[in-house]
Simulated scan of single mutants.
Amino acid sequence: MAHIELRDLDDDDLDAVFEMMRDPQSVEMAAFTASDPDDRAAFDAWIARERGSDAVTLFVVTERGGFAGTAAVFTVDGDREVTFWIARHAWARGVATSALRLLIAREPIRPLFARTAAGNTRALAVLEKCGFTEVSRTTSFAPGVRREVEEVLLTLLPALDGA
Results as ranks from 00 to 15, higher is better:
17 V>G: 10
18 F>Y: 00
19 E>D: 11
19 E>M: 03
23 D>N: 07
24 P>K: 11
24 P>D: 06
24 P>N: 05
25 Q>C: 07
25 Q>L: 08
26 S>C: 14
27 V>Y: 15
29 M>E: 07
31 A>Y: 06
32 F>N: 00
32 F>Y: 11
34 A>V: 05
34 A>W: 07
34 A>P: 07
34 A>G: 12
34 A>S: 15
34 A>K: 11
36 D>Y: 09
38 D>W: 04
38 D>G: 05
39 D>P: 13
39 D>Y: 09
41 A>G: 10
41 A>I: 14
43 F>W: 04
44 D>Q: 02
44 D>N: 08
44 D>H: 00
44 D>S: 03
46 W>H: 12
47 I>V: 08
47 I>K: 08
49 R>F: 02
50 E>V: 10
51 R>K: 11
52 G>V: 09
53 S>E: 06
53 S>C: 10
54 D>E: 13
55 A>V: 00
56 V>E: 04
56 V>I: 12
57 T>A: 02
57 T>N: 01
57 T>V: 14
58 L>V: 00
58 L>F: 03
58 L>Y: 00
60 V>M: 11
61 V>P: 00
62 T>L: 12
64 R>I: 08
66 G>Q: 15
66 G>C: 09
67 F>W: 10
68 A>G: 09
70 T>N: 00
72 A>W: 01
73 V>D: 06
74 F>V: 07
74 F>Q: 09
75 T>G: 03
76 V>K: 13
76 V>P: 03
77 D>V: 05
77 D>G: 07
78 G>H: 09
78 G>I: 03
80 R>A: 00
81 E>N: 14
81 E>H: 08
81 E>V: 14
82 V>D: 08
82 V>S: 06
83 T>I: 10
84 F>D: 00
84 F>C: 06
85 W>K: 09
86 I>S: 05
88 R>K: 06
90 A>S: 14
90 A>W: 13
90 A>G: 05
91 W>A: 01
92 A>K: 15
92 A>Y: 15
93 R>M: 02
93 R>E: 06
96 A>C: 02
96 A>D: 04
97 T>R: 13
98 S>K: 08
98 S>H: 13
100 L>Y: 14
100 L>K: 14
101 R>D: 15
104 I>H: 01
105 A>T: 02
105 A>L: 05
106 R>Q: 13
106 R>M: 10
107 E>M: 00
108 P>N: 05
111 P>H: 10
112 L>H: 11
114 A>G: 00
114 A>D: 05
115 R>I: 14
115 R>K: 08
117 A>H: 15
118 A>D: 11
118 A>Y: 05
119 G>P: 04
119 G>T: 06
119 G>V: 02
120 N>P: 00
123 A>M: 04
123 A>Y: 03
124 L>D: 03
125 A>V: 06
126 V>C: 05
126 V>Q: 09
127 L>E: 03
127 L>R: 07
